[in-house]
Design a protein around this nucleic acid. Sequence first.
DNA 1: ATGCGGTGCCGCCAGA
DNA 2: CATCTGGCGGCACCGC
Length: 341
Amino acid sequence: LPKLTVWVVDRGLASAVTGPLDVLTVANSIWAHRATGKSQPLFTWRVESVSGAQVRTASGTPIDVDGPINPETRTDALLLAGIYADAGPTQVVKTVTALRPLHEVLRRQHERGTVIAANCTATFLLAEAGLLDRRPATTSWWLAQAFRQRYPLVDLRPGEMLTERDGLLCSGAITAYLNLALRLVEKFGGASLARSTARTMLIDTNRLSQAAYKILSVEAHEPHSDALVQRAQRRIEKRLEQTFSLPALAGELAVSERTLIRRFRRALQQTPLEYAQAQRIERAKYLLETTALALDTVCERVGYRDTGYFRHLFKRETGLSPKEFRQAFSRRQAPWRKAGR
DNA sequence: ATGCGGTGCCGCCAGA
DNA sequence: CATCTGGCGGCACCGC
């Protein structure tokens, strides 16, 4: 059974520790209800700090630890909780270099086959140890530039929520620890357990539908300051149920189609049609989750008249057919209760 | 699944 | 000179 070790540091984020542990706790409950023998929990863990003493997090919430970091510990996975970076990237780098003794420990654990999962700013620690060179990684998007400067050999993908290669997992901005923890559940407990856990905790289904295999692009949500594109976005969102027309959109905004497309791509790394399609599928997902509307109706409500084509698009975007999606995400009840009685 | 008419997108270029 | 825009042609692909 998987044994995990969580490393926490002073000024860390409490939720980056407690969040993943809550995920594991819920996973344990579901697993126990499924198993017939159910005497032991699936996941067990130890929380460790450098000094071995209680840690005070950024919000002031203290976190009890089980002991000091043991370099030789036998563990299946190491979870590195993010450090709060309110003073910017230089503070992160300073913290991470101060933890130099841990770099060698990380390298040894990696060679031993230990899965290492780093959230948010903790990915800097992995990079500092040299473990991410020529491997894909991600980090909080606002730290991407500093990261790239300091670790040019790392294949940084700031748009991705989660990356994984050779047992080295990185997750993006703070709350991506949920996805990171879910991935650990999936790795050690299977995809089905991970799905049930996510459903039970109401972890964002939009992120979830792609969490395991495909990654939601953070860049799509990055703020941009192009007023023209913003107005175009509003108009697209306002008329999702009508057929998309580029000439009409450009006309209303009093620019040429060529310019509109160009500005869109620069601001959102997307074309207007791609944006409209993504928004429509988003609306469709919402309708499938929260209503019992027939598929034909949903299809029509998001601007498509051809159900076959809509299904094709939906699957392309989400990886699931509309029916599968509704089945997976519209349940209200905790899955273990449903299965139990 | 497939076919097909229309069009959204991009490379290229000229002009502002 | 650098940056931006609009027009055009061709092709991919959108959507029925």
